[in-house]
Design a protein around this nucleic acid. Sequence first.
DNA 1: CGAACCGTTATTGTATACAAATCGCCGCCG
DNA 2: CGGCGGCGATTTGTATACAATAACGGTTCG
Lengths: 227, 227
Amino acid sequence: MSRASDTAYQAIRAHLISGAAKAGEQLTEDQLSQIAGVSRTPVREAVRRLVDELLLVRSESKRLFVADWSRDDIEEMFTLRQMLECHAAERAARRLSRTQVEELAAVNRRLRDAIAGDAPDVARFLEANRAFHEAIIDAAHSPRLGQLLGKLVEAPVVLRTARNYSLEDLRQSARDHDELVAAFAARDAEWARAVMGSHLRRAFHTFARTLGPAGADAQGQASQGGA
Amino acid sequence: MSRASDTAYQAIRAHLISGAAKAGEQLTEDQLSQIAGVSRTPVREAVRRLVDELLLVRSESKRLFVADWSRDDIEEMFTLRQMLECHAAERAARRLSRTQVEELAAVNRRLRDAIAGDAPDVARFLEANRAFHEAIIDAAHSPRLGQLLGKLVEAPVVLRTARNYSLEDLRQSARDHDELVAAFAARDAEWARAVMGSHLRRAFHTFARTLGPAGADAQGQASQGGA
DNA sequence: CGAACCGTTATTGTATACAAATCGCCGCCG
DNA sequence: CGGCGGCGATTTGTATACAATAACGGTTCG
């Protein structure tokens, strides 16, 4: 990846994740180029990526805003992710070699380690979690699928880092992963799909619980739509 | 949309569709800026879109090539599209108003008109077809879904214009659309999903038939992968 | 004769200056 | 008192020049 535009991407992303920028706030390319320490050209490239990943939004008149995810947006995202990632699990179940299954199991042991004690290491947990899901998607051998999912998983992973998960939530995730590994070992595609489905759907509800009841929604903002 | 970068997008896209550029051929941003008649800056913007839509490919060293779709790539793409668009049909079935259903029916009448005689007007057919599917996706009210599908439908629609479809293929499509309208009118989400599924799966086989048997595949090229 | 090295050339990446478009505000008129 | 129009300021879009990097070809050494 090119140097400056990648620098810009990471810097801006970090800036968004850190919470320094509030949802709905306007940002200008100039500000961002100052933050990233590069000129506007690579910033624009980085911004395009971030818009694609739904972390930034461009208004109708091309002005730039920090994305503001409503509960419905998040549910939609989880639904799409579930659809695609269940498919990935199904394909992976048919293709994973014994060695690869063992590798997945190893990744999940790392994940368990991260939540072994009373004080879970959330950063390590998230890293292992990401690696686990990524390995499955890779194993599905469907480049386009991976590409589509890449965009979807970015955003929530980001938001997630800011949230507090209960230890029980994390442990349930680990159990889900174990069952996925079992399904893969058995080469049972239907099983894998089903486990992945409930895993992600529960993740959504765990996530949504922190946002309040289903009716309440975020306030308006520069129209996010536009397909 | 900005003037020059949009011009560039359309010009380059037209250049690719017209067949003037062979699959796997290298293109430089300079060439493209000459073709489009604008500077490299908007060309780069347009190129990013086209890479995203899988019409162009960037090699590991950032060189630019005309995408070369293997049969497997096409099958993958249709599979993903089916998954997403079935979901869209399901949602649309629950949401479409009587008026909207009638509008869909009208679009399909346009489509039938285009293939009424012995010499079908393929351009009009494709336009109506696109409008039909787009209306369903819009009705699904899922902006992210629309966005994902946008990328997937671009490529095949493009290739498709170059192919010859039998009159019977086109008529079958029209019948499928009629049945979809019926499913929508009945507000039967399962029915809609099923019809959409067979519609797209058949489209894939119709398409694949023109590419030869399943085993034969395209030759190598700059690695297309990269999720 | 083959393979690795180095200089040349082609191609992409970045910075900067400028043009176009948009916004927000202020004054004007109804 | 409220809406309309236009002007200044802000922000994005485009062109161009230059820098960095990767491919190519020739030469030389083993």
